[in-house]
Design a protein around this nucleic acid. Structure first.
Ligand SMILES: [Mn+2]
Ligand SMILES: [Mn+2]
Ligand SMILES: [Mn+2]
Ligand SMILES: [Mn+2]
Lengths: 237, 237
DNA sequence: AAATAAAGTTAGTCTTGGCTAAAGTTTTTC
DNA sequence: GAAAAACTTTAGCCAAGACTAACTTTATTT
């Protein structure tokens, strides 16, 4: 008689939501055989591995994830839907703070990381409508739809772009506030025209030209977080 | 060696903030000899008396309150300052939701009750500035200043107003969403002109005229939550 | 194929913030 | 002065979500 106290589904707690979101973010876009590792989760969330294992069992019990001990974890539909909701809440709020309350992009993440769990559906929809139902946040990340679907464009990292081929910056993935401020200071905003003029060996810095105006040396690790339109389609087809 | 884990002051938790706010709300405007009762707190917060006693000891340990067993509790400056901050957060957010996101007044309280604990100072100040630094929320309640001071006007409940004396509605104290909607539907908004035409005996309903237009029968208990400018000054002076 | 390293799980503990129930204390009211 | 109400104490319980230490499983080297 495994009657569970929680059988009348309470809303998942903040902790559960953060786990599900972290799993989503660690899942590879191309589905592989192995799921997300306990260790990856522990590291990303700054929580001990033992605590992660513990929580994964609960999440699996409630049907949010597929959990194969020692082999990692994948999201079920119910879990993915919660993850998408958190990401929608997060990105809509961040967009709102930037567009309506004069926040700069590097200030919004901390606020959103907490508030994403406490915003009502109503509030998120009102902010989203007020913003004109945007599909992307100000840093180019897609905002999931209310039904939990999300655009999955194939973007290429700036680190992989050919030399002397102009590209347009489409998305800047999460970096620290300091890095974001730096990137902004060298003109790296969505829509900027970028040309890679050279790449130093051993994954060294890139020499780039921004908006036909300035040259900058861009650290390779930062280039990995900057994304442009993918061109492989036209090549593979 | 009573080294306490918490001696490096962590931010007070949501639970602590809600206690301090509840104590503030139960303190009488005219300072009396006795503080707020355990029982009142227990009732207002829907928490058992034993649990309240327990928490009061912790709050006193940390210096947020003055706690005299059997005699009730009063806020210290540190505790009052947290209470004021919660109320400021709450009222600024409610005002913002109404003014900028099209909420109606009866929708905002639930949202604010949770979010008040998670809004950053920065966000509250930006909303407040965006609204033009209002001193009162849309239902006439004063918004505490950043330094924790608050206007304490002497208002009179509509239940105590003399017959046939026109008064202006200044403040509607917290009621349920249903009651707020009803009050709105009979024209009870801040600034409305009200004349008491009659009061039925035994604390019965008031016959009122609103904005020189309509007559309504107003339940005595609702009249207790509606406030107008105090006139006793001009009488006592 | 064994040894080692890395990843993962188990078991036991802790803190926070709740609860009930029963018994004793203090204050207030009659 | 007695009874009622409010309050505290004690004891024991619970759930969530962390932790550490010890052990197990899987993967990688040699
Ligand atoms: Mn973010
Ligand atoms: Mn979060
Ligand atoms: Mn409110
Ligand atoms: Mn609250």
């Amino acid at each position: 008689m495994r009657t569970r106290k929680n059988s009348t589904k309470n809303a998942p707690s903040r902790a559960w939501e953060d786990y599900l979101k972290a799993i989503y973010k660690l899942e590879k876009p191309e589905p592989t055989d192995k799921g997300v590792q306990t260790k990856e989760l522990a590291e990303r969330m700054s929580i001990s591995q033992a605590s992660v294992t513990n929580m994964l069992k609960k999440l699996a019990d409630e049907g949010y994830i597929q959990y194969e001990p020692y082999y990692g974890v994948t999201l079920n539909d119910s879990g993915r839907s919660i993850a998408m909701k958190m990401i929608r809440n997060h990105r809509v709020l961040e967009s709102y703070l930037v567009e309506r309350l004069g926040y700069s992009w590097d200030e919004v993440d901390e606020e959103a990381e907490t508030l994403e769990h406490f915003l009502s559906d109503k509030l998120v929809e009102r902010m989203w409508n007020d913003l004109g139902q945007p599909t992307h946040d100000p840093h180019g990340s897609p905002i999931p739809n209310i039904d939990g679907t999300i655009e999955r464009k194939n973007l290429t990292s700036l680190a992989e772009v050919k030399l002397d081929t102009p590209v347009m910056l489409e998305r800047i993935k999460n970096r620290s506030p300091e890095e974001l401020r730096y990137l902004a200071s060298i003109g790296m905003h969505i829509g900027a025209k970028i040309v890679i003029k050279n790449q130093a060996p051993f994954n060294g810095p890139l020499l780039i030209e921004v908006d036909d105006q300035h040259f900058h040396a861009l650290d390779y690790r930062m280039a990995l977080a900057l994304f442009v339109e993918d061109n492989t389609d036209s090549i593979n087809h």
